[in-house]
Amino acid sequence: MKIAVPVDENTQNTNVCVSFGRAPYFLFFDTKTKQTYFVHNSAASSTGGAGIQAAQIIVDNGVDVLLTPRCGEQAADVLIAADIALYKTFSGSAQDNLDAFAADKFSELDDIHAGFHGHGGK
């Protein structure tokens, strides 16, 4: 199973990023091989539709599970079409979140937001 997490830095001890679409990097973790790698989020600097493009990156990396603090409607449309399960992170390090997920301590993300679309954060 492959897990993705939006993160602030491309280092092992990075924190989870508060944003999904505009996270600087994505962390990918393969539970079988225990391999971790990072991908720069090219959507982070786009003027619009960042969530859609970011979701495309997640899909193209063959992810099964996304751990994220939040997710917009349109990004969720892409992720759900790809049958990717969404789980809500807690603030703190990506590793703590991955460990908690492995220990089955997570609840599914059900508060998909309508998106900001140029109107700033809520």
Binding site: A43, G49, I52, Q56, V59, Q74, V78, A81
Partner: peptide
């Protein structure tokens, strides 16, 4: 697409009208 209005998932093209 300069506005990221399209995505391709599982052999399907998704079009986001609002974007």
């Amino acid at each position: 697409c300069a506005f990221n209005a399209l995505a391709y998932v599982k052999d399907n093209l998704l079009i986001f009208d609002d974007i």
